[in-house]
Design a protein around this nucleic acid. Sequence first.
DNA 1: TTGGGTTTGTACCGATTGGTACAGAATTGG
DNA 2: CCAATTCTGTACCAATCGGTACAAACCCAA
Lengths: 189, 189
Amino acid sequence: MPRIVAEKSDVVAAIAEVFREHGYEGASLSQITATTGFGKGSLYHFFPGGKEDMASHILAHIDHWFEIEIFAPLGTGDAATAIARMMRSVETYFQSGNRICLVGAFTLTGTRDRFATPIAIYFRRWISALEGALHRTGLNQSQASQRAETAVLAIQGALVLARALNDAAVFTRALHQIEADLLRPDPQS
Amino acid sequence: MPRIVAEKSDVVAAIAEVFREHGYEGASLSQITATTGFGKGSLYHFFPGGKEDMASHILAHIDHWFEIEIFAPLGTGDAATAIARMMRSVETYFQSGNRICLVGAFTLTGTRDRFATPIAIYFRRWISALEGALHRTGLNQSQASQRAETAVLAIQGALVLARALNDAAVFTRALHQIEADLLRPDPQS
DNA sequence: TTGGGTTTGTACCGATTGGTACAGAATTGG
DNA sequence: CCAATTCTGTACCAATCGGTACAAACCCAA
């Protein structure tokens, strides 16, 4: 019984990479079976709802990972440390700019309409978790909110530009600047 | 004879909107014919190379528009004025965040591999044009380069986040901050 | 008005799409 | 060891995919 869960989780991770490479519409069932090694039988056993079901589970899987590794930790301990920890996790997760944000990729196509709610929740949660940490550094609510939004947005943009220029250095460079901007002392006070 | 060119340009613009909405892989020929009103006959007359040919022409069309309206103007006149002008053009072009950057959307899927060169050229040219203007404000080369990269990246990220949250205000808010960051006096001097 | 090129709609093509059916292999609890 | 359940490969399906062929409609110069 636990074996089912474990394998399903593996399947989710494997399919996610196919979506990451070809997008939702571009990832065909035959590509998924070929790349993951799972036949249609297995696929439709785990995901009776087909492609859309797979993508839903993938988004949930990603959201869960971020909740555990990024969002929740932002709420604990020293704020500056938590933010630095986030930046490190982000750099690792996105493989220094060589890996795409699937949520962001879904956002930019018609796929967004299918998954509008989980997509919006993911980004809102990220911003709100970061905003909480910034608030603990002494920033007021509106400044914390603005900085958090800017940081999340910049991470997404960095992923786009790094891939467009095929230059992962763009991403790491951006991450360092984002971190500096986040921890910069309040110019108001 | 000029009529051909004019109509072809119209077709390009119409198809671009379909790609913008569904992505390259997601935009089917039948959707293109239905949305644009042009039959397959016309489509394959103008674009013998099919879908890929259409997308190439669209990218060229976009690049040309940006060259005329954004990139080239950055090289003329007062730098601060030129940058402010760019921000206004960007806000108009992307309809205050309600319109997607097709180049960015292509970047995040397997489509990038097909059009890697024009995509990279587009972003490089944008950054380099902006870098030139920043250099004219007195910033040194490396600072100008870094700021230009950050600004272009942030615009892309703002488009992603605005669409993800279905909130155009995110985009306009970001644009104002980007402009302020670009024109901020050199902290070094 | 006619003739030649340009533009377009329609019918059609093989290939592939996402999805279903189901028999059998593998695994498990009893 | 057996039966029930879980898992998987294969064959198959209608629908749609991107693309081709081509004849008719259209347009403009002569």
